[in-house]
Design a protein around this nucleic acid. Structure first.
Lengths: 329, 329
DNA sequence: GTGAAAGCGCTAACAA
DNA sequence: TTGTTAGCGCTTTCAC
């Protein structure tokens, strides 16, 4: 039961109310060090009664720890910060930080100036960093001082553990589905070239078509619907007999469908279309989009947790991506 | 030019390097108080050279300010925190906080226990609160101590400034469009009853149909696609001659379209469908969704800025919502 | 098991 | 204009 107070209670208040010293109160509250069961009870009761909440700033100051988790997104322009995908990562990270009294800040890492990362690393307010859309040069710019308190959603390095969806597995699952349903001339609209983790999908595609003896039909994409629209046209002009298009992201796939429809191509009748990510609205599109799942929330949660808990983690954790078969393919 | 350092520089380091006292350095860095141009230069140079970044925790501690901005979302279950809309708000707030060295944390306010807000208010780490999906009882639970550092996205109160989209205006714009294109039996799928800001849309609907002498056809919704599907069925069964359905959210509208299609109803041929929010994928659906814009990012940015800047703001700021006419209506 | 005391990095009186 | 001083609230040796 918490009682209203003009001024939020401090540890000193709690200690006094419990009749112990500040140190003892601190040990009990922080759960560190020993204390007699009696003292423990009295402090807990007092804290409860006063509605005591530890001051995160003071705690961080004395511990030399930071007080916020930085989400740093690599991109060509700061517009990447408006991306719904980034928003989901930030929200998940914020949820993880909350019980620790840790907030999340959002930063843009210019693709051309990855050293901007150093500034973050030198900010003592930053207790850890979650990298998004990581590139090789960003990874190279990670200072040693960050070791153990940085994680990457995307590719990783020896010092930066990676958390990501298993693009390869998801891609393979989708392509197998396409193949199993009779498609033999499958084109792919990829992610941006500079985004290394997108390369895993492309590799899976190449391997699959090679093994099946199918033609390679690659078109560069950038995850946007607009690019999907254009890519659909491009594909049908270069390879008119294409019977399936796999896009590395759902928004792009939806754009592909729109582009195809505009040309009078039937989906999935003439051309099957599949995406990747299973965004909330994939099932609401017409036709409902066949895609592969992408547990963004779980991935971001794991990454944030890893940096906040300073727990040793494997160099790379891949979250499974499963086929979500609907109507478009 | 910043130089790598084993240990991030402190203000003390900067002062020493600049040959001034810590206070002078503080004044220069914080931009508060006076300092000679000479001292100013020397400190700035030293700070730059050492790659100095102020310690947010120390600063917050001495100032008695917090270090994070809490985004508190009211909802029946903690699942509201997974909502893409909430994610956009959090991301926008995080962006606003970043230059201040302020992080964002995300909290669920149980609809049945709005007093959970007190805990946040007593947390000295919290410098301000942005309320989302505000209800009357949440507003009542806002302690006086929060005055000036709380804002609401949704409804407000005498002490809590509100920032929201002009639902009324957007709704009216959509309904006028429906009317102008010949629709006369317009049903509406509303938002959840407890969400007061959703009431503005309903009021606009009631007024519009009354003035035009049209029948009132209201069905309760909850912003989800699933509910939209069911609502479509419900509407067509209760009022088979309905020729337009307006949903208070785009996901619901998409669900309505799906439900209608399942029954063989043509959109927009038989029934026009319009939504509200203009989510990124509204233009990619089939048919492309007619809706009203909802600048979530700008609204959240304004709300976050208001609490961080402690700037006096009007009791309510409404952001215009414009008709986005596409194919579904 | 407990308390006294020092100090994390910074700002804000106050005095010079 | 500048430096000195006293904390902000907390954790953490180190004695007892």
């Amino acid at each position: 039961m918490t009682t209203a107070a003009a001024r939020p209670a401090t540890l000193e208040d709690v200690a006094r109310a419990a009749g112990v010293s500040r140190s003892t109160a601190s040990r009990v509250i922080a759960g560190t060090g020993a204390a007699s069961p009696e003292a423990r009870d009295r402090v807990a009761a007092a804290a409860d009664r006063l509605g005591y909440v530890p001051n995160a700033a003071a705690r961080a100051l004395v511990r030399g720890a930071g007080v916020r988790l930085a989400v740093a997104v690599t991109g060509t322009t700061s517009a990447v910060l408006e991306d719904p995908y980034v928003a989901r990562v930030v929200a998940a990270a914020a949820q993880v930080g909350t019980p620790h009294g840790i907030g999340v800040s959002l930063h843009w890492l210019p693709r051309s100036a990855p050293q901007a990362l150093r500034e973050l690393a030198y900010d003592r307010g930053v207790c850890g960093i979650v990298l998004v859309n990581t590139t090789g040069s960003v990874l190279d710019a990670v200072p040693r001082s960050l070791r153990g308190r940085v994680a990457s959603i995307g590719i990783g390095s020896r010092t930066v553990p990676a958390f990501d969806v298993d693009n390869g597995g998801g891609t393979t699952a989708v392509l197998h589905h396409l193949y199993a349903t009779g498609r033999r001339r499958i084109a792919m609209v990829t992610g941006p070239r500079w985004l290394m983790c997108a390369g895993r999908s492309v590799r899976a595609y190449r391997q699959m078509v090679r093994e099946a003896g199918l033609p390679v039909r690659l078109v560069r994409g950038d995850f946007t619907p607009a690019r999907g629209r254009a890519a659909a046209v491009e594909v049908m002009e270069r390879w008119p007999d294409t019977d399936a298009i796999f896009a590395a992201s759902d928004p792009t796939a939806l754009g592909v469908i729109a582009g195809l429809r505009r040309r009078g191509v039937l989906v999935p009748g003439d051309v099957a279309v599949a995406g990747f990510d299973d965004i909330p609205l994939a099932e609401l599109s017409t036709p409902a989009l066949t895609t592969a799942s992408h547990p963004v929330g779980r991935i971001a949660t794991a990454a944030a947790q890893a940096v906040l808990d300073r727990r040793p983690v494997p160099p790379a954790t891949f979250f499974p991506s499963a086929l979500v078969a609907r109507d478009s393919a």
